[in-house]
Structure formats: structure tokens, C-alpha cells
Computed example of a mutant assay.
Amino acid sequence: MSPVVLAVGDLTVDQIFATFRDLPAWGQETEVDRMEVRLGGNTGNFALAAKRLDLDVRCAGPIGNDDNGIWITKELERKGLNTDLLDIRDGSATSVTTALVREDGERLFITLPGALTKLGEMLLHRSFPAAELALFSGWCQPPRVRKEILHDVFARLKAAGIKIAIDLAWSEASWNVRGDVLEVLSKVDFALMNSDEATALTDEADLIVATEKLYAQLGDGAVLVVKNGERGALLRQSGKPSVTIPAIKITGQVQAVGAGDSFNAGFIHALAAQQLDAEAATAFGCDFATWMLTHGRDEAVDPTVIASLRRHDRWDKSGEPA
């Protein structure tokens, strides 16, 4: 049987507009080549990517009892994902995010939170089934959710033998309460974030310095992964110096929306299903994210193909073809 993974956080309707060279000024207009509407949010993106790897993902997050909420539920069911833990909120709109994609793949996001503001309330009362690991992402960080609520749900899950991972999201409000965010990180087994979030949270421009500063705040035995785009990821774990895991080089332009969530899916699959160590899991996460960027999230994938990229030395340590 596939390991059960809880995916807790934001389920949204994503509207992706691509591609921009420059944003228009107020009162002006610009045109794009394409527009896509799809299930998203960090939790939605993770769930769909993890399903490609045949993880048994159970999504928990608040959505509205509206057309968008119905669409999200049907989309999860269509992909074969369990919807028993969805928290359907009467009188709340389902969250919608608009992503604008620049020509080089960089993105900006505009979000209507809607039902996501009820996430903390959901966590106070939600009971969870047995699982190997729970990934908290998107909105699961102070001040969007109070640290006391997160501490409580983490304690309940750990008492049931469930490991805790958290993936931070960019939030100016969170950097203003960094003490609370760091306190939450101290309670998890796996802390995941991107390089911008790591430097913003620590107020350190140097990523290595930021990584060491963050790792000092984590609990005993915790693993820290800082995702660094085309450069791969930086891994820090107990008893070992930080190590950079390079990403496979991609030629041409790709749409990077959801790349970090695909990394999370590969990383967690490697830990829970393949029983790999943190360094090998980080490499698998990088390679799976690259595969998703170049193949799309609807194409069938064989995990052994992803694993073979490095095992067969098809890529050198710089990420270039060998």
C-alpha cells in the first residue's frame, strides 16, 4: 500500500496568465499568449504532483460552498484524491489566486483568501487519520494561523506517530512576526522553504549564513531544505555540514508555477515510500520537480525513471549533462 500523507493548507482556483515582458502601468493594458485555470494553491499543487507518484494524499483545507469549491472537490475526485477532510464553509468564497508569469519564468501572485481565513479554526477542531507524514503549507504559518494552534495540532499528530513537515510561503506579515514563525519551525521534523523566504525570515542576504541561522532554531534531528530554483536545493541536517544538491539544467523557458510543490512531492515520496535518507530525498525532489516542469503534471511518471537520472550518472555535479 502507498504511504498516507496529509496535505494541510490552501486549496485554490489558480488563474495563470503567461507570459509578460513588463507589467502595464495603472490604467494601461497588455496582452498575454495564454491563460490557464487549474486546481492550485500549495496544497493543491502538492497533492496533484504526489498523486503522480502514487502517494495516498488526503487534502485538508477550507473551501467555500460555491461554484469554485464544488469545482475543486470534483477536480480532486477526478484525479483520484480523497476529499473526506475538506472543510466546506457556507458563506465563504473559495480562494482564488491569479499568477502572472514573466518571460524568464519568474512569477507574481494575487490572492483572494476567502475561506482560507478559517484555516486556524479548522485546525482547532479537525481530527486526522493515521498517516506517515503531514505537510503543512501555504497559509499554515503565523500570523495567518496562530502559533498556539499550530503547536496544538503538531502535538496531536506527533502523539499519533505522524512526522511533521512545513513549507513556508512568502508573507511580509510573517517576517514581521519572525519569532513566532521560528518557534513553529522548532516543532517540525522537516522545514522547507525557498531561498527568498529563508533570507527574508533571517534578515540575512547570504544564503549560507541564513541557512545556518535557521538551522540553529530547529529541534534536535530536524532537517532543513532551502529550495533555490535552477540552482537546486541547500540541505542542512544534524551532524553534517550544509550541502548543495544541484538541479538538472533545463534548456528553454518553462512555467515554474508549482515547481516548489513538485519538489515537496518528490522529497516526501523519497522519504516515505522509498525510505531514502534526506540527501537522496533532496536529490529526488529536485529531479522530480525538473521532470514536472518539462513534462507537465498530467503525464504518467515512473519513479524509477526519476531515480535513474543520478544513479546512472547521466548528470554531473553541476547539473549539466555528463
Rank of each mutant, 00 (worst) to 15 (best):
E29W: 05
I72F: 05
G319Y: 06
N264G: 02
G114Q: 01
F128S: 07
G114E: 03
A165V: 05
D14N: 15
F288M: 02
A259F: 01
E183K: 13
K249F: 10
L133W: 07
K163E: 14
S95Y: 01
R236K: 13
A159I: 09
I63F: 14
N42C: 04
K158I: 06
R58L: 12
I70G: 13
D287Q: 09
Q274C: 05
F154K: 08
F17P: 01
G114I: 06
H269Y: 15
E320C: 02
I110E: 03
S127L: 03
A93Y: 06
G219N: 09
N264S: 10
A165E: 11
T83A: 05
E183S: 15
L157W: 11
G219C: 09
A322L: 14
A259E: 01
Q141A: 12
K317E: 14
A283Q: 15
E132V: 09
M193I: 04
V4H: 10
D196F: 11
G258C: 06
E230Y: 06
L214E: 08
L86H: 02
T94K: 00
L276W: 10
G260C: 05
S174A: 14
K158F: 07
D316I: 03
E132I: 08
K79E: 14
R52M: 07
W26P: 13
L119R: 03
V32E: 03
L214N: 05
V305H: 07
T19R: 12
G266W: 01
A322Y: 14
S186P: 03
A281K: 00
G229D: 09
A307Q: 11
L124R: 04
S95W: 03
I162E: 13
L135D: 00
L185N: 07
E183R: 13
G91M: 07
L168H: 00
M193Y: 00
A47K: 00
D90P: 09
A60G: 15
K227G: 03
W139D: 04
A210L: 06
A160Y: 04
D152A: 11
A265R: 07
A210S: 10
E132A: 14
D104C: 07
I306P: 01
H151A: 13
I63V: 15
S2Q: 14
I70C: 14
T30P: 08
W139Q: 07
R156G: 13
D33E: 10
R236N: 09
R89V: 13
E197P: 01
V225S: 09
R102F: 12
N45W: 03
S186W: 10
L224S: 02
R310D: 10
E106Y: 05
L123E: 04
D152S: 12
F136M: 10
A270L: 07
V5S: 11
L168W: 02
G69D: 15
M35E: 05
D33C: 02
G44Y: 00
L112H: 09
L76G: 03
A200K: 08
K317W: 07
T304L: 13
L48R: 09
L123G: 01
E29H: 04
F17V: 09
E183W: 08
V301P: 02
A272Q: 06
G138K: 02
A273H: 08
F128T: 08
F17T: 04
A160I: 07
D152T: 08
G296I: 00
K227Y: 05
I149T: 15
R38V: 12
R297E: 00
A93C: 09
